[in-house]
Amino acid sequence: MRPEIAVLDIQGQYRVYTEFYRADAAEKTIILVNGSLATTASFAQTVRNLHPQFNVVLYDQPYAGKSKPHNIHQRSLTKEEEGQILLELIDHFAAEHIMSFSWGGACALLALAHKPRRVERAVISSFSPIVNGPMRDYLERGAHHLGRCNRHEVGHLVNDTIGKHLPSLFKRFNYRHVSSLADHEYKQMHFHISEVLEHNLGNALFAASEINVPVLFMNGEWDEYTTADDSRLFAPHVKDCTFTTIQATGHFLDMEHKAACRDTRQALQDFLKPTKREQRVRYHHIQGHHALAF
């Protein structure tokens, strides 16, 4: 399964590395939005869950991964600018679906608020509209270590908090990745954290009220940072929303163990390929059966 690779020019301002996993029999295309400090590699398992039922698009933000060498990193990007990049990619790949992970949810919601005409459905995973106590503690400690470019502490912080339920192999990968990032990437994440702590994700709720397509909010039962209960605060704001809790798993969902991977895949398939009867149901609650980003 080898992707088609391209570095795209976005509005003459950014160069964005993309991977397009084409499937001849697929009728729809889905674009995946990374969490902060993550790259296309973070979605390896998710690609296996979605392909070949869908064409799958991955990309790196201009400051990260394989986009990094193609850009000049003079300033940090806002979530609104990341949302505009996502809108350009939706048009380029004619994507009908969006799926985001973790802080990529803010970017995805801001893009969806523009009502892109091609998009039919969206999945927002491991995200909630508030900064609860555990998340605030995590972000404040993260801001402290990022501001000092303390790579060792940043790497351990990720694994000790949102990554606590990951297998040891993935924790080692996470640590190597997060502790080896460039200074501008740490500055970018510090900028995002400062925005979140100052505004408490109010922009995400405002954006959600403008969304006009069905949205699935998917969270892990053990995730104390973006909890399933907190995600349900989107219900009064998103006109057509569904919620699912993946049992016995934390923030990283399908990466944590086989049952979580199976149940995440099933939840995605049920939502993205609904039966005709399911398409008529609104505000339907789904409960999961069982049980790399920053």
Rank of each mutant, 00 (worst) to 15 (best):
R118W: 05
E82F: 13
A207S: 13
N200Q: 14
I98L: 13
F170D: 04
D91R: 13
F20S: 09
Q53Y: 05
N55R: 01
Q45F: 07
L292E: 09
V178C: 11
A122K: 02
H199Y: 07
K273T: 12
D240R: 14
G83C: 04
G147P: 08
F294G: 04
L87A: 14
M1P: 02
A208E: 05
V119C: 01
V7R: 14
S76C: 15
H73L: 13
F43H: 11
F54S: 03
P69A: 03
L89I: 04
K115F: 00
K276V: 10
I124R: 02
H199V: 12
A291L: 13
K276M: 08
T46N: 10
G163R: 09
H289W: 04
G35N: 05
C107M: 15
H97Q: 07
L205V: 15
A6P: 00
T39K: 08
L139Q: 01
E27N: 09
K258M: 13
C261R: 12
Y283F: 13
E120N: 09
V154R: 06
N200V: 14
G83S: 10
I246W: 01
Q74W: 11
D60M: 12
E278Y: 08
L233C: 02
E221H: 08
H285R: 11
V196D: 04
V16W: 03
V158P: 08
E140S: 01
D263T: 06
R75D: 14
E81C: 05
V238A: 06
V57A: 03
H97P: 00
F206G: 05
E81T: 11
D60C: 15
A111E: 05
G133S: 00
T264A: 12
H156Q: 12
A108K: 02
N150V: 02
F234R: 00
Q188T: 04
R136E: 13
Y186A: 04
G83I: 08
D229V: 12
F101M: 10
I193L: 02
W222C: 05
K164P: 06
Q287H: 10
S179E: 08
N219Q: 08
G163L: 09
L201K: 01
A293R: 02
A23S: 14
E27S: 07
A26Q: 02
V131H: 00
Q11F: 14
K171T: 12
Y59N: 07
V178P: 10
Q74M: 14
V56G: 01
V7I: 15
K79I: 03
I10E: 00
V238T: 06
L205D: 04
L197H: 03
T275D: 08
S102K: 09
V213Q: 09
A204P: 04
G65M: 09
N219P: 07
T244W: 03
N212Y: 01
R151N: 13
L86D: 05
I246R: 01
